[in-house]
């Protein structure tokens, strides 16, 4: 028995190390232009927060939540912007960049000639996307705290929630990328992403949606992420958040599994 189990246990750190080596490659590829794109990616949700949260918020005033708590519109929108930016950051890295590396640069064909396996590449790329997404989230939470849209303690608690959202979308993006045929498919994905952004309880409470949309939105992973982050930052955590966490963990696992399998199929021809 022992001899059967031991090699597997020994294989785990090796796989982790190989995933790390994929992240190392991305760190080595960091160049000035990429930095600019990364910093501007951080600014995007901040701009939305100021425009919609503060600008439009001035026209709205306070918002009464289903629980009866009244919050400023900016405090309501900010967590949704955080969740959305976790989504778009993770998707940018795992779809656009990932697809380019796989299909055009043939980067992974080279890596597969080494002991690194497809699943480990997927894990390494996702880990890298999370480093980037985590930095964005931390910065945004700092801004939210400074604007008094949440408390420092709640911001600390919301951080892992935002990272989880990033993992879910990163894994989903990678699985989707393996089905993409050309860049045109990415236009479609970007449109779907924007539609999710508009209708995931982001700008108004989902309770105010028409009935059909109200139930459809329950399926949206972004809605789950928004609900999770918002309930933490507004101090309204309840049992429903277990569903949110379970859903996002499920999406992450499923996405990674599909991505690993599809990559093996595409690359191990």
């Amino acid at each position: 028995m022992v001899s059967l189990v031991l090699p597997r246990l020994a294989a785990l750190p090796a796989a982790a190390a190989r995933s790390l080596s994929v992240m190392e490659r991305n760190a080595a590829a960091l160049r000035s232009a990429y930095w600019l794109v990364m910093i501007s990616g951080f600014l995007e949700p901040v701009l939305y927060l100021f425009s919609i949260g503060v600008g439009v918020g001035a026209l709205i005033g306070g918002l009464t939540l289903p629980s009866g708590q009244v919050v400023s519109y900016a405090a309501f929108v900010a967590p949704a912007m955080l969740a959305s930016s976790a989504m778009s950051g993770a998707l940018a890295e795992t779809t656009f960049n990932f697809f380019g590396k796989m299909k055009y640069v043939k980067l992974y064909d080279g890596i597969l000639a080494t002991p690194v396996r497809p699943f480990e590449i997927a894990l390494g790329e996702l880990g890298w996307a999370m480093l980037r997404g985590g930095a964005y989230s931390a910065g945004f939470l700092a801004i939210m705290t400074a604007m008094e849209l949440t408390t420092a303690l709640r911001a600390l608690a919301a951080f892992p929630a935002a990272v989880l959202a990033g993992f879910a979308f990163g894994a989903l993006g990678m699985a989707l990328s393996t089905y993409m045929r050309s860049w045109q498919d990415f236009d479609l994905m970007a449109s779907a992403q924007f539609a999710l952004f508009l209708f995931s309880g982001t700008f108004v409470p989902a309770e105010s949606y028409p009935a059909l949309l109200r139930w459809l939105v329950e399926l949206s992973p972004l809605y789950r992420a928004v609900e999770l982050v918002r309930s933490i930052s507004l101090g309204e955590v309840g049992g429903a958040q277990l569903v949110d966490v379970g859903y996002l963990v499920g999406v992450t696992a499923l996405g990674l599994m599909v991505a690993g399998r599809r990559m093996a199929k595409l690359l191990y021809k």
């Binding site: 190392e24 490659r25 064909d109």
Partner: peptide, 29 residues
């Protein structure tokens, strides 16, 4: 324990010549 030189070069265009070798070595731990 293999070295592979494919038919079409799939070098990493984002890295320098030397980085292509050092990052590749890391895949072998």
């Amino acid at each position: 324990r293999l070295g592979v030189c494919p038919q079409l070069d799939n070098l990493d265009p984002e890295l320098t010549v030397r980085e292509n070798l050092t990052t590749y070595a890391r895949y072998f731990r």
